[in-house]
Each structure stands twice: as C-alpha cells, then as structure tokens.
Design a protein around this nucleic acid. Structure first.
Lengths: 149, 149
DNA sequence: AGCAATTAGTTTAGAAACTAAACTATATCT
DNA sequence: AGATATAGTTTAGTTTCTAAACTAATTGCT
C-alpha cells in the first residue's frame, strides 16, 4: 500500500522518458525523407495556417532566432519550407510549408492520431474524458510553473 | 463538436512539448550545484539502490557506452557519483551516488512529487485513479511501440 | 527631413550531448 | 593456450542549439 504512494509521479516521469526515447530517431513522414525530431517539430510549428515570421517561429519553438535561421535554411534546401517576401516589411520573411512540407505535416499528425486512437481503444468513454481533462489541467499547471521561474 | 475530435491528441502533444521546455535549463538539486537535464537524469538512473555497471547505465539511459564514460567522468569530478572496483571482474566499474549525489537524487524526486501533488489537488480521488491507470496503459503502449520498430 | 533607437533576420564561434568505430584490458569458452 | 566475447575508454565528428556581434530596414522623435 505505502509502496504505491509515489507511483503516479513515477509513471508520469516514465511516460516522459519513453516519449523522449521514441522521438529520438529520425522518421519518415509523407513525401519527405527522414526527418529528425527537431525538423518535424519545426514543420509542426509552422503549420498549415497563415504564413509566419522567423521570430514568431522562434517563439513557438522556444529557441533563438539564430537557431531558426539555421533550421529553416535546411528545411528550405529540402523543399519542405518556403520563404516569401513580406508585403509591407522588407526585413521580414514569411514562412510557409511547401506541398511536400504539408504532406509531412499531415503524416505526422496522422501518426499522432493513430497512436492516440490506440490508447482510446483501451479506455471507456468516461475514462477518456477524465484523462483528457487531467491532461488539460496538467498543461495549465505547467504553463504557470513556466511563468514563475 | 467536430472541432474537438483531435484535441486529446493535441493536448498530449502539448504536454510533451511543455515538459521538454521545462526540463531544458540547468537547475539546482540538493547540495549539488546546477545540473543539466542529462546530468540529473543520469543521477536518477543510477539511483540509490545497488551499484550498477557502466553498461547497465548506458542501457537505462538508452545511450552508448562512450557517452556514459563521458557523463560519468563529469559527475565524478563534481563528486556526485563514485566508482568502485568490481570484486570479481576487474574490467568492470561499479557506479553509485555519493552523499552529494544522493541529496540531488532526493531533491529531484521531491520536486517531482511536489509537482504531482499540485496536479492531484485539482482532481478528485476517482479522477486521480483513472488518470493513473490511463498513464500506465500509455506506458505499456509505448513500450510495445518501441519494440515494434 | 534627419538621426537615434528598435526590430527582423543572419553569421560565427563555440558548447552540450551525443554517436560510431577503433582501441585496451580482462574474462570466458573450448 | 588461443580464439572470442565483454567492459569500458578514446577520439573524431555530428547535430542542435546559444550568445553575441552584425546588417539592413523600419519607426519614433524633434
């Protein structure tokens, strides 16, 4: 009984470590060749919505602008991302996904959904709902923890 | 309604990213100075149980033996980890935590528990239980996914 | 209009945390 | 004893990032 007290925290820790491990190696998504975790993560952050600025991407990824420059250069050379001139500010570059980038984006998304479906298959409808609200609360908690520091 | 279909997966993804972000910077634990994520992770993997071999540590961390050599060298020089000779195999080194390492280990553990307590404060007893079994099932699923590839 | 301050992005040198592969030294198997 | 396997180390090189100095365009002030 007493031994079980810390298991919740331990399991959450393990979950994190396993996720990290799984996301460590390059994988293929859509028509793109093998993509490293950072690469697919960047594609995910750019997304299929409106084109975004380099600095906005840096923000979303929590990395420096310099790192973004380097990453985008690589993805551009592999024709996954494209830059277009900003219509009003000639300093700025507008980033968006190419068709190949979009295919990687959807394939990645698809993989996530597939994985999540597997989890849902193991839970009842009620459990799914509780799990999801718990995850949301966790996210909220983390957001606040982040601002504290 | 339809818009909500993918939110579970998205939130789980966000959780992962937020956790990564949070664990990015060096932090202080116990009597040890600032420790990088890899360092505290290594200390956590060595643990306070029986002394372990370098290769066992490499296994637990899913990194190469060479990487372990380098990491342990650093932690040893900071007096967080110690090596003792293996009584029966003179090739092998037995790793364990020094008192300073142990204090870091517990402080890290403490931080996790504290965080988890904050989450639990937001959930009912029943919700906690469901959440924890869901996490366990997730872990199980991940373990299997890992073996597949 | 003119000059300072700000902002967008780039460049460069270097750090952290790895890997792969060749290596040393000991142990085990036949 | 000799071949093979195992524990750990070393080294050179990769990836992903940062910090800081930089360029070029924009905005704000007077």
């Amino acid at each position: 009984m007493n031994k079980e007290v810390h298991n919740g925290s331990r399991n959450l820790g393990r979950l994190f470590i396993q996720l990290q491990r799984l996301e460590k190696n390059p994988r293929c998504f859509g028509e793109a060749g093998p993509l490293t975790p950072s690469e697919i993560h960047t594609i995910d952050a750019i997304g299929c919505g409106e084109a975004i600025l380099m600095s906005e991407l840096a923000n979303r990824l929590s990395i420096t602008k310099g790192a973004v420059t380097q990453m985008v250069k690589r993805l551009e050379s592999r024709q996954l991302v494209q830059r277009t001139a900003h219509p009003e500010d000639s300093r700025a570059a507008l980033l968006s996904l190419t068709p190949k980038g979009i295919s990687a984006y959807y394939a990645h998304w698809q993989a996530h959904l597939h994985f999540y479906d597997q989890l849902k298959a193991k839970l009842s409808q009620e459990e799914i709902e509780i799990f999801e609200t718990a995850i949301e609360k966790l996210n909220e908690l983390l957001r606040r923890t982040e601002n504290e520091s």
